[in-house]
Write a protein that binds this DNA or RNA. Structure first.
Lengths: 194, 194
DNA sequence: TGATCTTTCAAACATTCGTAAGAATTCATG
DNA sequence: CATGAATTCTTACGAATGTTTGAAAGATCA
């Protein structure tokens, strides 16, 4: 009967999501087959459908988790700061660290745009993305910018700079934190209503 | 014998590239089948292989043309300017106009990253991209920036801001020129060695 | 016209893909 | 152990993919 369900095997579904994340991030959605994911999960392709109704639904779960990690990675980095500029700096560092550290797969939210998809999936991906961007909206709104600065453009410029790092970032160069420092500094001059 | 070859039918191959550009830009590389391209070209799938040895080689040709358009679109916009900042402003406008005007397909150089590909194709895509980025390298190098500014980061920040527009740009809002103006202005403050 | 080269077609190929259906297995619990 | 539910395997289907091949059609020019 309806007793407690989740206790012993939180394993499989998360294992699958983990494997799928890595593969989607490396090879893209179309470049990853259900058989690939199954093999990486130590399972057979058909068995995936016990946990996910379709490949799209699975990707939705993967995407949601990637966004969640990015959100928490970003938010956690802000912790003990009151100064708006410091908050921005730390958030950017958290973002880039989560995104660029090769161990993670959050980069798939950059390469797998919702743009081309359609229907319910697209709507979900857009919603996820909004949830992340809201973090930066709040931070940017709190910045003491000059009154003639358009905060929407300011935010989009920053997010663009940060997102684009995954195209050129090289592990052998500066650390994610250093990159974030450099990039934020470039926008910092247009500062407090002086 | 080896007489002049190219005179009457420069049509087909370019028609195919045009059709493929549009489809690749809209649906991505994997989302576009050779049959799709053939149908859009008014031809049968097999006939494509008279002009291109493989899908990858065809994409290479498409990518090269997209880069070429972006390059000329960017360079042409610079024409009558001597002031470095004006040059940058105009180049950015040319870039965004070429990229964002819905009639064009240059946006595929943003969505179809070389990152995931491999081998000869990847090398070619990277080379193409470098060719475009060189335009901005030159312009940025000519800017009278403060001596403590890292021009590499500055350039990458700008290119990131510009490239990212294709994620959020909406035809109903500001024009590509206005967007370029806004974005460049955000970086402009760190300006001439004062 | 006939010969030769270019271009296109028609049809198929071998794979791979997402997914379905049902049997087989594992597992917790009475 | 016996029962029923949860999980996995096996097998396969139908569709779509990139590509090949050899013949047909079109063009070019002696």
């Amino acid at each position: 009967m309806p007793t407690a369900k989740r206790q012993k095997k939180p394993h499989r579904r998360e294992t699958i999501i983990e494997a799928a994340s890595a593969l989607f991030a490396r090879n893209g959605y179309d470049g990853t087959s259900m058989r690939d994911i199954a093999a990486e999960s130590g399972i057979l392709a058909g068995s995936l459908y016990y946990y996910f109704a379709s490949k799209e639904e699975m990707f939705a779960a993967v995407h949601e988790q990637a966004i969640n990690r990015l959100c928490t990675g970003t938010i956690q980095a802000i912790k003990p700061a009151a100064d708006p500029w410091t908050r921005l700096q730390q958030a950017s560092e958290g973002y880039l660290t989560t995104m660029l550290s090769s161990a993670t797969q959050s980069s798939l939210i950059i390469t797998e745009f919702p743009l081309r998809r359609s229907g319910k999936l697209r709507a979900k991906l857009v919603t996820d993305r909004r949830r992340f961007e809201a973090i930066f909206s709040e931070i940017v709104d709190a910045l003491p910018l000059a009154p003639d600065v358009d905060r929407s453009y300011w935010r989009l410029a920053l997010l663009g700079m940060l997102a684009w790092t995954h195209v050129w970032y090289d592990n052998k160069g500066d650390s994610p934190n250093q990159v974030a420092q450099q990039l934020v500094d470039l926008l910092k001059e247009r500062t407090a209503t002086p």
